[in-house]
Structure formats: structure tokens, C-alpha cells
Amino acid sequence: MEEIKRIDTVVQYNNYVGVETLHPLVSVVDLDKVDNIHRFKQYMNLYAIFLKDNNCGAMNYGGQPYDYDDGTLVFVAPGQVYGVDSDGEIKPSGYALVFHPDLIKGTQLGKNIKGYTFFSYDVHEALHISKKERKTMIECLDKISEEIDQNIDKHSKTLVVSYVELLLNYCVRFYDRQFITRSHSNKDVLVRFEKLLDEYFGTDHAQNLGLPKVSWCAEQLFLSPNYFGDLVKKETGNTALDYIQNKVITEAKAKMLGSTKTINEVASELGFKYPQHFTRLFKLKVGVPPNDFRHLN
């Protein structure tokens, strides 16, 4: 079994790539200055953002070219494993920003970091950026580097964290752009999502397995839960959970108006363990309880 190296501190990461540590909690690494590396896997207890230079031609997604190939951003959160899968040596190119969770502890960014959902995206959901976007990223990294090069004082943390937050907010903007440029492929995901739910409720899956979870749907569509949720939200305006619940209500209405089944039977067929949970959701979505809806119609 391949050994997984544990990286708990910025110093450990800097030592691994062979660069000097200028700040114990944050580092910007020019990967072009790093020696060739071999295949490895690392368990990271740090936040990391890798800006990789692309030298492999135009990218493809869903069988069609799209986006930009001037750089790729990959995000790693504490507790994740990342690595390079290569049989020989490779020459890294680009930049790495790594920072310890303690850097943002007690700051507004620390409170909001979970809102940057792309830290939990899969590698194939990475952010592909244009020359202009890449320039913006490097400008942010340069600002962080300049501040790290200064003598640490009472302003250092505030300024570094503000530049990191600025970089992350640009990433949010660029991901929004990427969702737009992938609109055709995203709509294909929604079609497959709808078909998946049709098949789920058209069989006995709901009765045997319960209501479909967002994570299960994402897995069936070969997407990470966070990326899938963000995609559905941006394409429909609803969360993936809302989408599933709306589908449940549509199925419930059809069952109640097209048969003489009791409300408890309908709830059971839709995957509810407790009928009162079904009644509560139905009233929340429709405005009236299931029995009232049936009588009114």
C-alpha cells in the first residue's frame, strides 16, 4: 500500500518542497522553482490552493471543448488527501498557496470558510481560468507574498487574511463564470438528475431505501455533493434538496389523486418512515395538509 505522508504545518509543507519558511501559518510557493517530484500522496491538515499551468492543449468537458486552458485551480481543505499520480518524475509549474486553519481562526473568513464550497469539489470539477483571470490570481498571490516578506507585526494577520479572502472571492466569481460557460453540459446533468428521480420513484427504491439523498444523487451522476448542489442552485434557483422535495410532492399529488390509497400508504411508498413527516413537508410546500388537498381536488 502506498504510504501517505502527513502534512500538519506550513513548515512541513515548505520543507517538503524545499523552500524557506517566512511565516509559520502561510506560504506562497513558486512551483517553477521546485525540483522534480515523484508520485506521492499527502494527508493535508492545511488549506491549499494550487494554480497549475496547463500545457496540454484545450480542455474538454462532456465531450465538447469549453472554458479556458491558461491555468487550473485545485482546492484542498484540511483532512483531505491530495497527490500526484505519475510513474516517473514530473516538473511542477505554477503556484501554491497553503495556510494553516489558525491563520483565519477568529476572523470573518474563519467564520465563512465553509461557504467556499469549492474546497470540497472533486479534481475533475477544478476551476479552469483565462489569461486575464490567471493574472488576477497571481496579483493576489503577489500581495500575500509581499506581506509575508515583511517583518511580522500586529497588522500582518489582518492584511494576509484580507488578501486570501480577496483571492477566494475572485474564485467564486470565476466559478460562476465557469458554470455559465458549461451551461449546455449542466443542463444535461439536470436532465439526468430528473431521469434518476423518475426511476427512483418509479420502482420500489423509495419504499425500500427511503427518500433519495443529495449525496446519493451526486454519486450516481459522478459529481461531488457540493459541486452538484452548486450546479443545481445556479441552474434552477433551488437547492438540490428543494428539487428532490418538489419531486416528492409532485409524485405525492399523482398518487393521492390517481388512487384510493391512504395518506399513510402514499407516505410509505415515497420513502417516509413516519407519515407525520410527509404531512409536514406537504403542508410546507403546498400550503394545506394532504387530506385537505385530496378533498379540495
Score class of each variant (00 low, 15 high):
K5V: 12
Q12A: 01
Y13W: 00
N15R: 06
V19C: 02
T21R: 05
K33T: 11
R39P: 04
M44I: 07
A48H: 00
N60D: 02
N60Y: 10
Y61E: 05
Y66D: 02
G79Y: 04
S93P: 05
G94M: 13
V98R: 03
D102F: 06
L103M: 06
K105H: 07
G110I: 00
N112R: 12
V123L: 10
A126W: 05
L127I: 11
I129L: 03
K132P: 00
M137T: 09
I144L: 02
S145I: 01
I148H: 03
D149N: 14
V160Q: 12
V161M: 07
S162D: 11
N169K: 15
C171Q: 12
V172G: 04
Y175R: 14
R177S: 14
Q178V: 07
F179D: 12
R182G: 06
H184F: 14
R192Q: 11
R192S: 09
L197D: 04
T203D: 09
H205V: 00
Q207G: 07
Q207E: 15
L211A: 01
V214Q: 03
A218D: 02
E219F: 09
S224W: 09
P225L: 09
P225A: 06
G229S: 15
K234H: 14
E235W: 02
I249V: 15
K253D: 10
K255N: 12
M256E: 04
S259H: 13
S259C: 13
P275F: 03
T279W: 02
R280A: 12
K283P: 00
G287S: 08
V288I: 15
D292R: 09
N297G: 04
